[in-house]
Design a protein around this nucleic acid. Structure first.
Lengths: 253, 253
DNA sequence: CCGGCTTTGTGCGATATTGCAACAAATAGA
DNA sequence: TCTATTTGTTGCAATATCGCACAAAGCCGG
């Protein structure tokens, strides 16, 4: 018996779907809009929103709902509870200063990567990345390093759940191409991505392993594309990344 | 008719309290522990946790529950949906580079400040601050600037809901002392805090106002304590902070 | 290995929520 | 202006959840 009927709370699951309806693209929602996005009945959605408002998670101006900073307690209670960001931040800062480039650490959540810590130098990407930001795993160096550590079967499932968008002309956008690249990443021990996320952006990533050798996160540096070949970029930054990865290995849970 | 009975979803409110039970201090919870913290019946808490696990927000090892990165979707939908971080980040980066110190922008949530953007230079604080991090408002420069913009009555309520901990020997830890300092902040237009959050850390903050003049956030710089008097520090950094604050005024909603 | 002791899981009547459908109010379009 | 359409609200019967009380399962010190 996988799921027992009386052990589930439909209302909670629905409310969470309503919260997730608020995204960067849709920060202000009417009841109907929220119902549409969440795929719920208007009446139910209304009750969810009123509850959220009453609890301080939403603000209601009589027409539209917006989420309040209070919802950050839900997520960042967790972020703060993860020792990872705190542990890696000093290393990240130091590394970033040493190599003069932005560095980031991300973890995998399904087919997406989630940034958990970041030391910014210059703003290379048009997207403002910050802890909590998400990007698809298949086209990022951070994502590929972590996908490469997963069983092939599971990777395939992840890749098939989402459309492999060609974000730039260079983006690998078939399951086969990505799987092939992943096997290279696996054997090299690092991932290098040249303008597949965004034109003008290159990055190199290495896995972060815990004491038992399990890949728990990934570390990368992102830099502006330049005429020099990718091989030189890798040669320039990979050793520093790998050094940090080794130093962190004993520290991570 | 303030709250109509059928317009509320008890289950959702309870579930959210359960999620908030997971904090940095208590990242792993058994059913009973979670019930205790959330102040709910064990049976209800169990149903909440099982639901959360089923929806992927929690992991369950048969004994303990932990939140998964998926809960970040709840909070960061909000963070991302706030235009504030995106707008201020470039200014923050530029300011940070210019003055050679870390800068941050935070907003007020009740009696706490929430960091929404940050440009780090050197690590002065032992606490790793990042977007989403929280600190009490009463002892931080960012918090005082924003508290000073609130009606006195409301500030008093906030201050009375939480224990004014003396985090260092310098921390103002009575309602009267803080209220007094706030009136100074109000008349000066900025807040300067010398080692009240943490030994060795000083900071100077100014309010960020929207086009209508309402204080919507605060901007600060944090630096290591040094023998030089606080007045010199203020003189050195305040003008730059104020300049950014003025430039942002037209841009913020 | 055995009682306490704590924690987890379950049955059930009382109670709250669900989603439909109908209605009212607001909005848009002609 | 009037009608068509969308959106917000309410009543209600079917259904799910609540929290109590109790059973079962671990846990621990002796």
């Amino acid at each position: 018996m996988a799921v027992k009927p009386n052990d589930m709370m439909g209302g909670l699951a629905k409310g969470l779907r309503v919260i997730e309806a608020f995204t960067a693209d849709t920060p202000r929602l009417s009841i109907s809009e929220a119902a549409e996005i969440a795929g719920l009945d208007r009446a139910t959605t209304r009750r969810c929103l009123l509850t959220l408002a009453e609890q301080g998670y939403c603000a209601y101006d009589g027409k539209f709902f917006t989420v309040t900073p209070r919802v950050l307690r839900l997520g960042t209670g967790c972020l703060a509870s993860m020792p990872l960001p705190r542990i890696v931040q000093p290393w990240l800062d130091q590394l970033s200063e040493k190599i003069g480039q932005s560095t980031s650490v991300a973890i995998l959540d399904g087919a997406e990567i989630v940034y958990v810590a970041r030391a910014a130098q210059r703003r290379v990407m048009s997207i403002a990345l910050m802890p909590g930001s998400r990007l698809p795993a298949y086209c990022t160096s951070l994502g590929r390093v972590m996908l490469a550590a997963l069983p092939e079967k599971q990777v395939k499932e992840h890749l098939e759940t989402q459309s492999l968008l060609a974000r730039t002309p260079y983006t690998l956008n078939t399951v086969e191409a990505v799987m092939g690249e992943l096997s290279r990443v696996r054997s090299q021990g690092y991932a290098a991505v040249d303008q597949e996320v965004e034109p003008g952006l290159r990055s190199v990533a290495v896995p972060l392993r815990n004491a038992r050798g399990t890949v728990v996160a990934a570390l990368n540096t992102g830099l502006a594309a330049s005429p020099e070949p990718m091989a030189e970029v890798i040669e320039a930054y990979l050793p520093s990344l790998q050094k940090v990865s080794r130093e962190l290995q004993g520290v991570l849970a």
